[in-house]
């Protein structure tokens, strides 16, 4: 084809892609356009967070400033970052642990009513959160759990379990049963078989699941709004949203807070890119 027939090129350029040169270039241009579409909105926010209020919404002018961040941290935003990190990390650890042992049970054991029990776990995904807020608020209030990180850990664990179980069962289905059986025949207890044999194999799937769960918690707003009112306990989305006023919004702080809310997820995702891909492959695409 055109590409291979062209003049001497570096090795990589001799790959037969199945496209003619114009076709290849069209695909490259398309890819670049798509990538701009994907990145632009987030990049726009990050750039805006470094603009002065006078130039923030002006497309042509740009005055660099750190004032937005300075003023953001004056509101105690560092505390909100800590709260979000703490809640999300602990909730993800609990949820992933609980989901892993449940997923193992669903995948490896047979017991009466299993399909019903497994089905009801998965159905958890189809409940609209908006209808859960008020009843849970009343329940937690009765238990004295308002303005308490325990209630948020509970919520964040609960919202992530159904999809985590789903992903992990899918993943386990790809791990041959003969592996743990062999280990048990060799004298391992079931716990040893899980810990020494299954867990290491499952690790990429567990990482993918945990990342997904983290995302869900990190951006959650509805429950946090209802259950956390003390400034000391608030999470980042809450603090961010409070900058939108009735008649006026603090755009400088909003942009800075938005950039900071996005940064950790970006930093978390980028290194995990390959693991996520393989984890999702095994988890949600059972072959």
């Amino acid at each position: 084809m055109a590409a291979t027939a062209a003049a001497p090129m570096p090795r990589a350029f001799r790959v037969n892609t199945g496209f003619s040169l114009p076709g290849e270039l069209a695909l490259v241009v398309l890819t670049i356009l798509v990538l701009i579409f994907l990145v632009y909105p987030t990049a726009w926010i990050i750039v805006a967070s470094f603009k002065t209020s006078a130039t923030m919404f002006s497309a042509t002018e740009f005055e660099f400033t750190l004032e937005n961040y300075v003023s953001l941290f004056q509101t105690g935003f560092a505390r909100n970052i800590f709260n979000s990190l703490y809640l999300c990390i602990v909730a993800v650890l609990i949820s992933t642990f609980v989901s892993t042992i449940a997923a193992y049970t669903f995948s490896r054991m047979r017991f009466r009513g299993k399909s019903m029990i497994f089905g009801s776990v998965l159905l958890g995904q189809c409940f609209p959160w908006i209808i859960l807020v008020t009843p849970l608020f009343i329940l937690f209030a009765k238990m004295g759990l308002l303005n308490n990180h325990f209630s948020m850990l509970f919520v964040y664990t609960a919202i992530t379990i159904p999809f985590s179980v789903y992903l992990l069962v899918g993943y386990l289905e790809g791990v041959p049963r003969s592996l743990d059986e062999a280990a048990m025949i060799d004298g391992c207890s079931r716990f040893q078989a899980i810990w020494l044999i299954i867990f290491p194999i499952m690790l990429p799937g567990i990482v993918a699941t945990a990342t997904y769960a983290f995302m869900l918690c990190w951006t959650e707003y509805l429950f946090a709004l209802a259950f956390l009112t003390k400034t000391q306990l608030k999470t980042m989305p809450l603090a961010l949203y409070a900058f939108f006023g009735e008649d006026t919004s603090e755009w400088g702080r909003i942009m800075a807070a938005s950039a900071l809310t996005t940064a950790p997820t970006l930093l978390l995702f980028l290194p995990l890119q390959t693991r996520l891909t393989s984890g999702l492959a095994a988890g949600s695409v059972k072959q």
Binding site: P41, T42, T219, P237, L240, S258, T261, T262, F269
Partner: peptide, 8 residues
């Protein structure tokens, strides 16, 4: 985009 929270 996935790493960008819906509010943002």
């Amino acid at each position: 985009p996935w790493a960008t929270p819906p509010i943002v």
